[in-house]
Amino acid sequence: MKFTAADLKAFLKNVVQVIEENKDYLSELDRKLGDGDHGVTMSIGWQAIDEKLNGELREEQDCGRVCITAGRTFLSAVGSSVGPLYATGFLKGAKVFQGKSELTGEDLKDFWVAFIEGIKERGKAEVGDKTMVDTLQPALESLKSRYEQTGDFMVAFAEAVSAGEKGMESTKDLLSKRGRSSRLGERSLGNQDPGATSAFLILSTFLTTVNAVQAV
């Protein structure tokens, strides 16, 4: 499998679109648990990335630089909780891609491992805290173990996305312990975490993007 800088940028473009489509849904989830801005925040951040994609990243071939710009741009545009989280993900992942204009399955696997580890380190949340880590951690575990078994990124990542989806859904039954919603106690039950949802959207968009590349 061959994943180019253009493909990476196509992935980011796809996320821009998916976030726009899910903006109201993400805010709606956050209204139930937090301050109602998750969709707004994600949209502001990804629109800022979109501007860079249409501007200074247009000719960029270094996948590392693409990720650095994406991370820094997202962070500067939004701040918030997800700014440092997703930005750290991209910045840690960028190290894997540094200097590369074509990525192997191994690179992609290493990227997502670094991305997720970065987020965990930044946020210090654990599984069960009702955050995006509930999506990301199972995805990480599945990705690592299946890749070890199969050496096939596509297979491993597809399973990671499924595991992430289950993790996302599990947040409905969790009590909030992190972020704005942790004060809610019992009342947080029944509502899916917005960050867990946006994390899943990002993962699944990556899957569709790689699948499309593969299919060509």
Partner: peptide, 11 residues
């Protein structure tokens, strides 16, 4: 100053 109800970024 951050966005509405959102922490400002580090910059």
């Amino acid at each position: 100053v951050g966005n509405i109800f959102a922490s400002p970024p580090p910059d």
